[in-house]
């Protein structure tokens, strides 16, 4: 589904991504890990063109989306994005957070949009909270709404940016289970995180990003115990104690 080749992104001469290669197959779940500042968020932002790449290519469903004539809005509607801080629209109820894009971008009637949104909220056990505002629900609930908002658009894939960083450990585990379930339902997922525990729940294999480069793509076991670089072993070793 996604094929990234030699992706470079620099900000005023400061190189954040330095030749990244990454593949995500349809139905796959891909976990990208790394310490903060390793370029994870930048990578995601290049993916839906919130940022323009400096060089390299990103193929999404066969098309190079780094081209100038890419329909950015079409692209963005196909990639569901779940943000670190959830980024729910504060002035809209839970239900309207999910329906806004359906109504304004897909042109659905309010009734149809409500039906579609209710279906997704039901699935995420948030239907009872549909009339509340974002400030009235917990972090974990906001996360679910953010996921429902992404799912409602029937995206080709969903991208998670640090989905557990704003949650306590118990909620983190719930969210991890939820993302797994989504993937079992054949939703393609790209998840970026520095939470080793989350990474382990989601996938056996992980991509390790360090200073803008893919350092390794291997199993947790290997990265934790056998990787030649002590720093890498230390990073993944953190997950052992949790």
């Amino acid at each position: 589904m996604i094929k990234i080749r030699s992706l470079v992104k620099d900000f005023d001469g400061h190189c954040v991504l330095n030749g990244v290669n990454l593949d995500v197959a349809a139905g796959d779940i891909k976990v990208v890990m790394g310490a903060s500042g390793c370029g994870k968020s930048t990578l995601l932002r290049c993916l839906n063109r919130l940022l323009d790449v400096t060089s390299g290519s990103i193929h999404f469903m066969g098309n190079d989306i780094t081209h100038k004539d890419t329909d950015v809005r079409q692209l963005r509607q196909q990639i569901g994005f779940v943000f670190q801080q959830f980024a729910l629209y504060r002035h809209l109820s839970v239900l309207d957070n999910v329906t806004l894009a359906l109504r304004k971008l897909r042109g659905l009637s309010r009734a149809d949009a409500n039906e579609k949104a209710s279906f997704e909220l039901e699935k995420l056990a948030m239907i009872d909270h549909r009339h509340k505002y974002p400030a009235q629900i917990s972090g974990g609930q906001k996360q679910r709404v953010a996921i429902a908002r992404a799912l409602a658009m029937d995206p080709s894939m969903i991208v998670f940016d640090e989905p557990t960083s704003a949650l306590d450990p118990i909620m983190s585990r719930e969210v991890a289970a939820l993302i797994r379930t989504l993937n079992e339902e054949r939703v393609t997922i790209l998840c970026v995180t520095h939470d080793v525990a989350l990474g382990k729940v989601l996938s056996d294999n992980v991509v390790f990003l360090d200073r803008g480069e893919v350092k390794a793509e291997a199993s947790f076991d290997y990265l934790c115990h056998d990787h030649p670089d002590a720093e890498v072993r230390a990073f993944f070793g953190r997950g052992e104690s949790r």
Binding site: N48, L50, V72, R73, Q74, L75, R76, Q77, I79, F81, F83, Q84, Q85, F86, A87, L88, Y89, R90, L100, A101, K104, L105, R149, M153
Partner: peptide, 15 residues
């Protein structure tokens, strides 16, 4: 305003 909300809306494909 929250900059993340603006990004979220852009990510959803709003003009």
């Amino acid at each position: 305003l929250d900059a993340a909300e603006i990004d979220a809306a852009k990510s959803q494909g709003f003009t």
